[in-house]
Design a protein around this nucleic acid. Structure first.
Length: 444
DNA sequence: TTGACTCAACATCCTTTGCTACAA
DNA sequence: TTGTAGGTTTCCATGTTGAGTCA
């Protein structure tokens, strides 16, 4: 007979099993709690009797479920149910939440839902009430209620997982692309939950840590692309690129800053061909004054390219042409967002916008009182943004994730509506590269 | 309870051009 | 003179969030 138990995010066992190592202090074999399912399976397969004291599950509430899934949602759920582990990839607006709620109704065991923002905490709380007929517990954003179905922020889960890691049989990671980061991955490791579901529209990470998914949650078990749903469940869409040139003054300044960078690289026999090269430059800049100047010059040049005057001129034309349409303008820098806000008298939302003001602006955008808003990257993810028909991208990162998230903002299905994403790009500059990087690698 | 503040964590951060193939 | 192996420092700036503290 082998005894296994839970202790502060770990699983403790009297006997050895794959994934466990001997610990002198605790005088037993230990491993991360996420190994629970494998360890249990290993002992059972080896015909070893187990005294299992790991889980102390919270009671599951009585629910009244009334969810009807679309066909692809059924398929996604079916794929996940085969192993009850893994990630479902569905575009924004494709209805990830209802699949997860249906899964909760089928599993019927205590469930922890991990979300990145307080906005999503509230949205999930409301959905659980609406579609399962129970009040979920909430942890984070000023709440601290532990219940059979609990919604928690990643930040709170990170600090509390040692305490609650054995109280849930099922854990759902919303926007699961956050999970592999160094700190947050501890949540998955410290949880003993045998059933795991990850949800996202954009699983790929630029740091390559998406390779950790199989061990933390399970592999991608189902994936549907935007183009698969466009026309039927999401709006049809078009993507248009408009190229502009820097003004003479901007080009002069741009070349000046790029020259500083280039001279430094040439003089020091360096290249900027990979992210590693770039990080090397960053490390150099800590001590070396010239390297620091080169890096600052790189920042300045990028700012000129991404926020060029020609883009604002083109935007002016577009706003005239698209009068009456619901438009979200996306920028890379907050300064550009505020400049446009001032110039065209458009409300701006950035991370500096107080919460109440943000709610008011979005409400007026929803009701149609505002037809155009400008934002940096706060509205990319995690906030319930009223749908628009046109997205104008003036600047952004080189990541496909941001591109797909922004596109998702205009794809909510409406009758007779075709969505349009318009990118304005400064040709012959690093802005062109950023745009190419984000669109080339995006699976649409 | 609210608001203003600080702090820690997370994310992005690289290729600027010559050539070819292909679609409009 | 040229080549190579071997560690180490989680980061120039900017944007964003949640949590905690204090008045």
């Amino acid at each position: 007979m082998v005894r296994i138990r839970y202790f502060k995010g770990l699983i403790l066992s009297d006997f050895s099993a794959p994934g466990l190592t001997w610990n002198d202090e605790l005088k037993c074999y230990i491993g991360p709690a996420m190994k629970y399912r494998d360890v249990l399976y290993y002992f059972k397969r080896s015909n070893v009797e187990v005294n299992d004291e790991v889980l102390e599950l919270l009671p599951f509430p009585i629910i009244t479920e009334k969810i009807r899934l679309r066909r692809y949602q059924e398929e996604a759920l079916g794929a996940w149910l085969r192993t009850k582990r893994g990630i479902i990839v569905i575009p924004t607006g494709g209805g990830k939440t209802v699949i997860a709620l249906k899964a909760i109704a089928l599993i019927k065991q205590s469930t922890l839902i991990v979300v990145p923002t307080i906005d999503l905490l509230q949205q999930w709380y409301e959905k659980v009430k609406d579609l399962l007929g129970v009040e979920a517990g909430r942890i984070g954003g000023g709440y601290d209620e532990l219940k059979g179905i609990t919604v928690i922020t990643y930040d709170s889960a990170y600090t509390q997982i040692e305490k609650i890691g054995n109280k849930f049989a099922f854990v759902i990671f919303d926007e699961v692309h956050h999970l592999p980061s160094e700190g947050y991955s501890m949540i998955a490791q410290g949880s003993a939950a045998p059933y795991r579901l990850g949800l996202t529209a954009t699983p790929e990470r630029s740091d390559g840590r998406d390779q950790l998914y199989p061990s933390l949650v399970g592999p991608i078990v189902y994936r549907v692309a935007i183009s698969d749903l466009a026309g039927k469940y999401l709006s049809d869409f078009t993507i248009k690129r408009i190229y502009v040139r820097l003004t003479e003054d901007e080009e002069k300044l741009y070349k000046h800053y790029r020259g500083i960078l280039r001279n430094f690289l040439v003089n020091h026999n360096l290249e900027l061909k990979s992210l590693e090269d770039f990080n090397r430059l960053v490390r150099l800049a800590i001590r070396d004054k010239e390297a620091r100047e080169a890096l600052l010059a790189w920042h300045e040049a990028l700012k000129i390219a991404v926020n060029s005057k020609a883009k604002i001129e083109k935007l002016k034309e577009l706003l005239k042409e698209l009068k009456g349409e619901k438009i979200i303008i996306f920028t890379r820098n907050t300064s550009m967002a505020y400049e446009i806000s001032k110039l065209f008298l458009i409300p701006a939302i950035t991370y500096k916008t107080p919460k109440q003001e943000r709610i008011e602006i979005l409400e007026k955008f929803r009701s149609g009182k505002y037809s155009v808003i400008v934002t940096s990257s706060v509205l990319d993810e995690g906030i319930d943004v009223p749908d628009a028909s046109i997205a104008i991208v003036l600047g952004g990162y080189g990541t496909p994730r941001q591109f797909i998230q922004r596109l998702g903002r205009i794809l909510r299905k409406k009758e007779n509506k075709s969505a349009r994403l318009i990118e304005i790009i400064s040709k012959g500059t690093s802005d062109y590269n950023l745009s190419r990087r984000r669109t080339q690698n995006a699976t649409l």
